[in-house]
Every structure is written in C-alpha cells, then in structure tokens.
C-alpha cells in the first residue's frame, strides 16, 4: 500500500509540476517541451498497438497526418478549432477501423509493410487531392498562445497515457490484447473475438495521433505532406517506444523524452546537423545489443524470475 501511495504522491507532484511549467520556463523551452509531450502521446499510442498487441505498424504517421489535414480543411471551411478537432479525431479513428479490417489479417513483417504502404498511399493522395493544397500544403490562421498548445498537448498525451494504464495494464481488455500478442491462435480457439479486439486497438491507437496531429497543425499553422505525412513520423514513434521499452507504460514516455529533448539540445548547441541521426543510430544499436527491453528494463529487471522455479524444474526432471 505504501508503495502505491508513494507512486500516487509522485504522480501528483509530477502533474502539478507539469501544470506549473509554463510559469517557470521561457517560451523557447516551452515550445520544445510541448513538442516532447506530443511525442510522448504519439509513442504511447504506437505502443498500444505494437507493445501490447504485438502488431508493429510503420504507417502510424498517416494518422497524425490525417488528423492534421482534416482539422486544417474543416477550419478552412469555417469550423471552430474544437469542432474541427473532434471531427478530425472521429474521422481518423474511423479511417483506422476501415484500414484495420484488411491489414490486421496480416502478421509480422507483412503487417508492417501493409501499414507502411497505406501511409505512403495517403501521402500520395494528399499530393493530388483538390482540397489539400497538394505539395504546397495548407496555411491556417495563427493562434499565438503557446500556453494553450502546451496544455492541449499535455491533455491529449496524458489521456493517451491514462488509457494505456487503465485499459491496457489494468483491465481485462488489456489482458486479452496481450493474449493476442502471445498466442493469437489460442486466443481464438478459447473464445476471444480477435478480429474485433484488434480493430478496436488499431482505432484507439490511431485516435490519439489524429488528435495530436490536429493540435499540431493549429500550433504550427502550416502543414504540408513532407511535414505531417513523412515516414519519419512513424519511424520516430517506433524508435522512441523501442528505446524506452516496448509494452510498458513508462517506456514510450522515457524514450520520447530522451530522444526528442536530446535532439533539440543538439539542435540548440550545433544548429541543424545530421549529427543527431548518427547518435540516433548509435543509440538504437546499443539498445538492441545490450538492452533489448529498452531503457526502463534497467529499473524493472529481475522482478519475477523465480529461483524456486529452477529447483522445481530439477525436481520435476529427476521425478
């Protein structure tokens, strides 16, 4: 109980600190932290699908882009931001549910390729559609309130983390999702409607990137295919979650913070440089070689490997 209380107090303090942050840091750093928080939400959403269900998507950037574009298009039609954002969220989730039906029949590398192809398709579509501005992108009316965007990103990303915690870690639904990851055939044979569960998870993991994309579009005020539909977005989600620790709630948070803040600090120090990519490559190689379960495994390791089990094993073998 005391351990739980401690965690709760820590969470509360962290929450208060996050809420107070705009009062203590410059607007320059506030923008950077806003970006980091957005990536926490993105990486966590990807983690719902890949970490908990074992379906590695390389097309999740598309949902970010769809959210951004739908918000921009609707606002251009005169809808207020909140209305446009809600509709964009619904459209993104619906899109994912439709795309999920055929792609979730595939597994492993095939699923990854299919989602990647879907994302490329969306990017090409945006380039040719009459109402997306093609390669020129879309410009939106600027709303110059950094605090608003900080709190918006915080709210959405916190919601993504909360959903991960309550739905994927604590609820039976999450247990079923993890059962699909471990043994899909057995899950089906024992009564789980795996198709329905998979589509739900896919839609949910697309919903938050959709909302974040909408907020991002309004924040940056200018979007184009190379900014919100580049494959790099999905790649970053993947790397962040892997770096932090796949299938854990803390992993994507740690991974996103480390990578994004690291990237920005390098940028502050050296300006635009590809040095970041070199470090990124090194970081990935080191994690894969020495920490296959990510950074968070440094702190949670060896919790439940039973020494008693090995004795038991010996007894079983010797009869």
């Amino acid at each position: 109980m005391t351990k739980n209380n401690k965690a709760l107090v820590g969470l509360l303090l962290a929450g208060i600190a996050m809420l107070m942050l705009p009062l203590v840091i410059s607007s320059f750093w506030l923008r950077i932290v806003t970006g980091a928080i957005m990536w926490v939400g993105l990486a966590q959403s990807w983690n719902m699908l890949a970490g908990y269900m074992g379906y590695v998507s390389f097309g999740h950037g598309a949902f970010f882009g769809i959210g951004a574009y739908v918000t921009a298009i609707l606002m251009a039609k005169g809808l207020p931001f909140i209305g446009a954002l809600v509709l964009a969220a619904l459209v993104t989730a619906l899109f994912a549910a439709i795309i999920g039906q055929p792609t979730l029949r595939l597994q492993g590398a095939y699923f990854a390729i299919a989602t990647w192809a879907f994302a490329e398709g969306i990017r090409q579509l945006v380039l040719v559609l009459p109402f997306t501005g093609g390669a020129n992108g879309m410009r939106m009316e600027a709303f110059l309130n950094e605090n608003f965007f900080y709190y918006s990103m915080l709210l959405v990303s916190a919601a993504a983390v909360a959903v991960t915690y309550f739905l994927f870690q604590k609820a039976v639904f999450g247990l079923r999702v993890r059962a699909i990851r471990e043994e899909e055939t057995a899950s089906q044979a024992l009564g789980l409607n795996t198709t329905a569960i998979k589509v739900k998870v896919f839609a949910l993991s697309a919903l938050f990137p959709g909302i974040l994309g909408g907020v991002y579009a309004y924040w940056i005020t200018y979007i184009h295919p190379e900014s919100v539909l580049t494959p790099l977005i999905a790649d970053q989600m993947v790397v962040m979650a892997l770096l932090g620790g796949l299938g854990t709630i803390a992993g994507p948070i740690v991974g996103a913070m480390v990578l994004f803040l690291g990237n920005r600090i390098l940028w502050v120090m050296f300006g635009d440089t590809s040095f970041y990519l070199v470090l990124l490559g090194l970081a990935i190689a080191i994690v894969i070689l020495f920490l296959p379960d990510g950074i968070v495994s440094l702190f949670t390791r060896k919790k439940k490997t039973g020494e008693g089990i090995s004795k038991e094993n010996v007894r079983n073998i010797t009869g």
Partner: peptide
C-alpha cells in the same frame, strides 16, 4: 488444448 503448447507465455 494444443499438441505443441500454446500458452500465453508472458502472462
């Protein structure tokens, strides 16, 4: 049940 065990390993 399955001939080659199909448990949910990490559960």
């Amino acid at each position: 049940t399955f001939q080659n065990l199909k448990l949910f390993s990490r559960l």
